[in-house]
């Protein structure tokens, strides 16, 4: 009989170490009985795949995205060249696909740098609309008065929402509230820009219908977050 001196338990005759504390056991002089294992020695049938490193996974996603987006660009430019012997309409899909490529790549390449991600999303948008406006007839038409302020408002609102979400200690209903407020600001700016461009004078149209319910709902969500949800045991907390 073999005993573990630390645990005080008797262990099987073939054991070199204690199954509980891993202490090396003193081999006994007496002849060991013919021991047969009570369980087969096979290994699990289903081997688990080794976990891929996060960075490798991201780089693989970037590579796949690049290959997937570059192929249609090449196809559209080549088709355009074969048919028209010049590059005309293919500039539209090319610009759109490049924009998608930049916007997908930014969070894959700069995961932890929120400012780099924000610029990676924002600058390609600015360039994209500039290119689209210029392709049209070689001059700037709507870019400065419509596209620029809208992109800025989306960029700023998106950045504030993302930053606020990351920094918020108690995430809950406050996040949808922030999103609603951000969306209201974007709607307001879009409305002002588009209405002014069409009417050639400053003005407001439909955005008030969005603004009022969105702000009210957002406010209600914030109230729920700070007063009710966070203090589940309100009655208990307020008892004298």
């Amino acid at each position: 009989m073999t005993y573990c001196p630390r645990c005080g338990v008797e262990v099987e005759a073939n054991k070199i170490k204690c199954p509980l504390c891993n202490t090396t056991l003193q081999p006994l002089d007496e002849e060991k009985p013919d021991y047969k294992s009570k369980y087969p020695d096979d290994v699990p049938t289903e081997e688990q795949k080794p976990p891929k490193e996060k960075k490798k996974k991201r780089l693989l996603a970037f590579e796949i995205t690049s290959v997937v987006l570059v192929s249609p660009i090449i196809i559209s430019i080549t088709t355009n060249l074969i048919i028209d012997q010049t590059v005309t309409w293919s500039l539209y899909p090319t610009a759109t696909l490049l924009l998608a490529w930049f916007m997908i790549s930014a969070p894959l390449l700069f995961t932890k740098n929120i400012i780099a991600i924000a610029f990676g999303e924002f600058i390609p948008l600015l360039i994209f609309f500039l290119v689209i406006d210029i392709i049209d007839n070689g001059t700037l038409n709507w870019y400065v008065r419509v596209a620029l302020p809208i992109i800025f408002s989306i960029g700023v609102a998106g950045f504030i929402i993302a930053f606020g979400t990351l920094k918020s200690k108690n995430k809950g209903l406050n996040i949808p509230a922030f999103i609603l407020f951000g969306a209201s600001i974007i709607c307001l700016i879009v409305d002002v820009c588009v209405t002014s461009y069409i009417n050639s004078a400053l003005g407001l149209g439909w955005s008030l219908y969005v603004l009022v319910p969105a702000v009210l709902t957002g406010g209600f969500l914030l109230y729920l977050h700070f007063r009710v949800t966070r203090n589940k045991d309100l009655k208990r907390r307020l008892q004298p």
Partner: peptide
């Protein structure tokens, strides 16, 4: 690691019980 098992059986031994351990 058989961490809970170790504490459990050591307590039984401390209580004066003879314990024999087997594993797969």
């Amino acid at each position: 690691e058989p961490i809970v098992e170790k504490y459990f059986f050591r307590k039984l031994v401390k209580e004066g019980l003879p314990v024999r351990i087997e594993t797969n």
